[in-house]
Design a protein around this nucleic acid. Sequence first.
DNA 1: GTTATTACTGACCAAACGGTCAATATCTTA
DNA 2: TAAGATATTGACCGTTTGGTCAGTAATAAC
Lengths: 223, 223
Amino acid sequence: MKSISASRIIHMVNEAHRQPPGSIKAHILVAAKAEFAQYGFEGARMQRVADRAALPKPNIHYHFKSKQQLYLAVLERIIESWNLAFDQVSQESDPAEALEAFIRQKLKQAQQDPAASRLFANEMIQGAPNLKHYLNTSMRSWVQDRALVIKQWMLAGTIGDVDPERLIFLIWSATQHYADFQVQALSLLNRAEFDDPVLTETADFLVTFILRGCGLSPRDRPS
Amino acid sequence: MKSISASRIIHMVNEAHRQPPGSIKAHILVAAKAEFAQYGFEGARMQRVADRAALPKPNIHYHFKSKQQLYLAVLERIIESWNLAFDQVSQESDPAEALEAFIRQKLKQAQQDPAASRLFANEMIQGAPNLKHYLNTSMRSWVQDRALVIKQWMLAGTIGDVDPERLIFLIWSATQHYADFQVQALSLLNRAEFDDPVLTETADFLVTFILRGCGLSPRDRPS
DNA sequence: GTTATTACTGACCAAACGGTCAATATCTTA
DNA sequence: TAAGATATTGACCGTTTGGTCAGTAATAAC
């Protein structure tokens, strides 16, 4: 195995992953995301990435040194874009409103970029070989922050008794599943595609159901 | 592409997939399930299947003609084992009891055979290239039968207002996620492994939460 | 307009891939 | 125990894989 230090790899990736939207690197990253999402790291083929990007294969290798590095660049881009949607919530927020916003946002994310969701799913299924650190640091503290707020809501009596970590995990699973298992969902719901009407119906169901699960009623909306 | 008719493939698979538990074919199928679950079809390597089974590679090819056929045999075995757990439920069943049994059963399945769950997840992520027919026939009618019972419960007022298909999908997602995203769940819950105590806590949470989401209280249990 | 740098690509390579095959061992049954 | 069928395997094959490289085009700097 070539001895390239982890920090050097991370440095190179950091250079590569934030590209102006129209750039060729950004274009390759989009193609690679789709490929890795569908086939996983080992199943992905550099030739197919090139075909998806409509570029010769060596061109891909010019911009990204190796398959591994391309994968890491895609992965970092996804995590970063998810962190941007790091919505603010506090003890003072209304639980129903905050949870509803969170559910709708997660579901919209899953619909707008199912490839990102599937790539992440592949990484988790394989035991997160490239995201173990993320799971034990950023993700964990993010969850703990939110869990603390939920616990405070519980103490204040503005929400029912629920395990906050498991609640967050359930919301993630319920929303992500519509991206990862889209074919199953569409067959089950007898729909052709995951379009806006399906999104709205699904979001409404999830909000109602989960809020009820938390001992809350969904706030009234103009109908 | 070789022209082998679909029925011939299915016939061959049917011959292969039900093996006495101690047989070599069964042993290979277990190894292959783990490999396909972790890497997906394209990412799986026949050599690694052989290594997992502690057999020379040609031995695998003696028992299963091709990678594709081995994969199909594993898939059929999983679907079949899931169909065996086809628990009976009717209009007369108690909704809370029936849902609780369903949730606990699904979660236990996910814990006892996470590889099966992950293999299925991989197949869904790729758009179910080998399970489209299953999704549109067996799975669909299974869901519709259960959905009908849930609708009757709703008419009888023994359960709150919920979209039955989406409820089933949510239960699947919430339970399967603990197998597919096990590393994430363990990190989030600060646990080392998905053992029986975690299983029980998780099942209790899911039962309470989902029943509340359906407008039900979990039936009392001796504590 | 020359030069230096960056971007691109057809042709190629060693290694790994799924799969084969002839030779051998191990069971069945008469 | 001979004969046939089944099971096993070391050595091998054509193809595909991730990746390279020399040569060329395009761009930027002076």
